[in-house]
């Protein structure tokens, strides 16, 4: 009898806010668009002892640089995650404008069509025309966040608004469909008036495998030469088990000689095997004990 009284109707929905979450999921974020190297290859005690493999030490530093640069470009994107949209449409969202660095306010504009999200950060400088400094495209996968896409940071335009003598473009391709896959291209980047350089980073991470490769220049020989060596490094690891770093070095103090240097390391990053093609370093351990037995530096 009492069941006859049970009745409900209404218009309650969180649909508009769930859709806000969809738009936000289409934006790059720190967890998926940064390099996670170093977090699961060393422990605090090993870091303190300073006995990690040299190439692990180098990759940790490079990863931090990459992350810093990417996160710097995503500042406004991260900021809107904490704020409701300023304007909602069925397939559009707008956040801002918000005050930013150098007195440049910025807005984040997003649109959606057929599961493809396009977004851009529009700067509003105090002088000059508005312009886009960061823009991207995201293709939804099974979920919105589980898709792939890319975004581009126009560092030169932003620097010009701030009156800085800097230039460069950063392009990040990512694929979130199976773990994290990143390809970061830094082109003609010039900071503080330095010579423009090109850097490339590739990073893949799943639950069972990590792969980080980069190419950069370094005074690896530490001979004080003006000519820096070109260093290409590939780190592969199995989380919680150990990994292997292989480096190829040309230029700098090595001239035309290709120096190939390999190190294997355990779960905490400690060196377990080392060899190099010019016998410049002491050979340590047995390569058969490495997590990855063969050297590979060919992804980029």
């Amino acid at each position: 009898m009492i069941l006859l009284f049970i009745f409900a109707c209404g218009t309650v929905t969180n649909g508009p806010f769930d859709d806000d979450a969809n738009f936000l999921a289409a934006l790059p974020d720190e967890a998926r668009q940064t390099v996670g190297f170093g977090d699961d290859t060393t422990d605090a005690a090993a870091r303190g002892l300073g006995d990690r493999a040299d190439l692990v030490e180098l990759s940790v530093v490079i990863a931090a640089q990459v992350n810093g640069f990417v996160l710097g470009t995503l500042g406004l994107v991260d900021r809107v995650r904490e704020l409701p949209p300023t304007e909602r449409g069925d397939n559009t969202r707008r956040w801002g404008p918000y005050e930013g660095d150098c007195g440049v306010s910025a807005s984040l504009l997003m649109s959606r069509e057929f599961g493809v999200y396009q977004w851009s950060v529009l700067g509003h400088p105090t002088e000059g025309d508005d312009g886009t400094v960061l823009y991207g495209t995201h293709f939804s996968g099974e979920t919105v966040v589980g898709g792939d896409g890319s975004f581009v940071w126009d560092h030169g335009r932003w620097a010009s608004w701030c009156g800085l003598d800097e230039s460069g473009v950063v392009t990040v391709d990512y694929d979130n469909r199976d773990g994290v896959d990143l390809l970061v291209l830094v082109e003609h980047l010039s900071l503080d008036g330095a010579e423009p350089t090109d850097w490339t980073y590739a990073y893949t991470r799943t639950d069972t495998l990590g792969d980080f490769q980069y190419r950069t220049v370094s005074d690896l020989a530490e001979d004080g030469s003006d000519e820096l060596a070109t260093v290409t490094v590939r780190d592969r690891w199995i989380p919680g088990t150990g990994g292997r770093s292989d480096a190829q070095v040309t230029g700098g103090g090595f001239g035309d000689t290709l120096w190939q240097w390999s190190q294997c390391w355990g779960a905490t990053g400690r060196l377990t095997f080392q060899t190099d093609s010019l016998a410049l370093t002491e050979t340590v351990g047995n390569e058969a004990d490495c997590v990855f037995e063969a050297a590979e530096v060919d992804r980029l």
Partner: peptide, 15 residues
Amino acid sequence: PDAGVEDQELFSVAP
């Protein structure tokens, strides 16, 4: 009021 979303209502009979 700040989100530009229309008001929503629920009516129910609760034993």
